[in-house]
Simulated scan of single mutants.
Amino acid sequence: MSTVTPDRQALTEAPIEEILSMRWSPRSFDPRAVVTDEQVGSLLEAARWASSASNVQARRFIVGRRGTETFDRIERHLMGFNRAWAPNASLLVLAVAVVAPEGDGPVGAHRWAEYDLGQSMANLVSQAHALGLHAHPMGGIEVAALQAEFDLPERFLPVTVTAVGTVASPDLLPEKHRERETAARTRLPLDELVLVRD
């Protein structure tokens, strides 16, 4: 059974908000599209207001627009196929977890930092969709190289890079990857994900 409608909306087991069911992660981005200062501000503001354990806000962001040095510095540390499609995105956002407080705290003291960072990026991705953009988070990144590239302290851990832009035709992708771009969206059923539900 298909888990997506022709417009790529997920077919869910229970009703959810359309902004969530319509969210998906394309790889084909319009290489001419730009994001405005206002849009970038909106994306980052959404990330800023995500939940935060004890309001520590253990997350930081490095943002580069296509055509800038920052974009290139992020892009050169993507891995594998990500390097083939991500350069067409309008924006690359490096998401960094602050895994320890400044000073004498041991690395890992903020054990929830990556979780909080994930909530920030989920907000950013949803806000992108609300603005008519799309976002594609990537875990295939060179963590140590990005840390060195931006001279980040040990307690600043690069976790993901998210490409943001305007979705384009799958025909812009290499032929072997086009089918994946249009394949049905799938998720494990709830009864496999939920261990206990009373």
Rank of each mutant, 00 (worst) to 15 (best):
G108E: 06
H110N: 15
H110L: 11
R111H: 09
W112N: 09
A113Q: 09
A113V: 07
A113E: 13
A113R: 05
Y115N: 10
Y115M: 06
L117P: 01
L117M: 07
G118N: 07
G118D: 01
Q119F: 01
Q119H: 04
Q119Y: 05
S120P: 00
M121D: 02
A122S: 10
A122R: 02
A122C: 05
N123L: 01
N123A: 12
L124G: 03
L124D: 00
L124T: 02
V125I: 15
V125W: 02
V125S: 01
V125L: 02
S126I: 12
S126N: 14
S126T: 10
S126A: 14
Q127C: 05
Q127N: 01
Q127G: 01
A128D: 03
H129W: 09
A130C: 04
A130Q: 08
A130Y: 02
L131Y: 00
L131F: 00
L131P: 00
L133Q: 07
L133H: 03
H134D: 13
H134F: 13
A135R: 01
A135W: 00
H136V: 09
P137F: 11
M138Y: 08
M138A: 09
M138E: 03
M138I: 03
G139D: 06
G139L: 11
G139P: 02
G140D: 06
I141Q: 06
I141T: 05
I141Y: 04
A144D: 15
A144L: 14
A144Y: 01
A145T: 04
L146V: 09
L146F: 13
Q147M: 04
Q147A: 14
Q147G: 07
A148Q: 12
A148I: 04
A148F: 00
E149D: 10
E149K: 13
F150T: 08
F150R: 09
D151W: 05
D151K: 14
L152D: 08
P153K: 06
E154A: 11
E154Y: 00
E154F: 04
R155K: 14
R155T: 08
F156A: 15
F156E: 12
F156G: 10
L157C: 09
L157M: 10
L157Q: 15
L157A: 14
P158M: 06
P158A: 06
P158V: 11
P158G: 05
V159G: 08
V159T: 12
V159L: 13
T160F: 12
V161P: 12
V161Y: 12
V161D: 03
T162I: 03
T162Y: 06
A163W: 05
A163C: 12
A163P: 11
